[in-house]
Each structure stands twice: as C-alpha cells, then as structure tokens.
Amino acid sequence: MPKHYVSALFTGLIFGLGLLLSGMANPAKVLGFLDLAGNWDPSLLLVMGGAIAIGLVAFSIAGRRSHSLLGQAMRLPLKRELDQRLILGSLGFGVGWGIAGLCPGPALVALGAGAPKAIVFVAAMLTGMALFEWFERKPAA
C-alpha cells in the first residue's frame, strides 16, 4: 500500500482522537460555546488555539516546500480574494452548525461512535454535498 494512504489513515485517526479528547465531538459542548447569551463554555477557543499554534509552524514549513515529505505535490490553496460564494457559503454553514452543533469532522466521529442521530445528520450532509455537485455541473440554462 502506498505510504501516503497509510499516513492519511493515521492522520484521520489522530484528528478524530483530538476531536474526542477536546470535547468537540460532543455537539452539546459546541452549542455551549455558540450560546454567548447563556452559560458560555469557551473550550472551543482553546481547541482552536492549540490547533492553530501547531498549524502555524507546520504551514510555514509547508509554504517553503514544493513537495511533501512523502513526495506528494504540495497543494496549498492560492486564492486570496474574498467573494460572495465564500461569505454566503460560510454564513449558511454557521446556521446549520448552530442548529445541530455538528460540523463535518465531529459528525463523522459521532457516526463512528454509532449515534443514530449522527447517521441521519451525515446522510443529510452527504445529500447536501451531492446537491452542490449537481448544481455545479448542471449547464446554465
């Protein structure tokens, strides 16, 4: 098996364990962060802070390389300008996130934990993603 498949598997595993350890796989805890007017739980800020502290170092190294350590092309997004799709999409995502307390990563972890509600959420999310592909590929009338 190519090494980069093995590294992808391990990376996904560590990401999932990080979500579990951080408490972010628990939608009730995420909603505790999003509920500024209630009893506010700032834990999510520390999760992001810890992740970004490591990420800053890693991405500054990655930015100076053309290939990964396993010889894969370095695929860093190049686009820098803001556009309507980015903002509207992100606003819409926040609404869904606020309704359920679930975003894509934690939803997959909750699915692996066997939560029936996570199965429904992931099925709806995949349907939404498939709808997006369908709209994108439909030729303009």
Binding site: F15, L21, M48, A51, S68, L70, Q72
Partner: peptide, 17 residues
C-alpha cells in the same frame, strides 16, 4: 485535544501535501 488536531493538520500537509 486542540494540539492533537493541530498535529493531524501538520502531518497531513507535511506528509501528504
């Protein structure tokens, strides 16, 4: 947990690009 998530993001960009 955040540090683990950061390590995963670091591994993915540095190993898989």
């Amino acid at each position: 947990g955040g540090i683990l998530i950061g390590l995963a993001a670091a591994m993915f960009i540095l190993l898989n690009g």
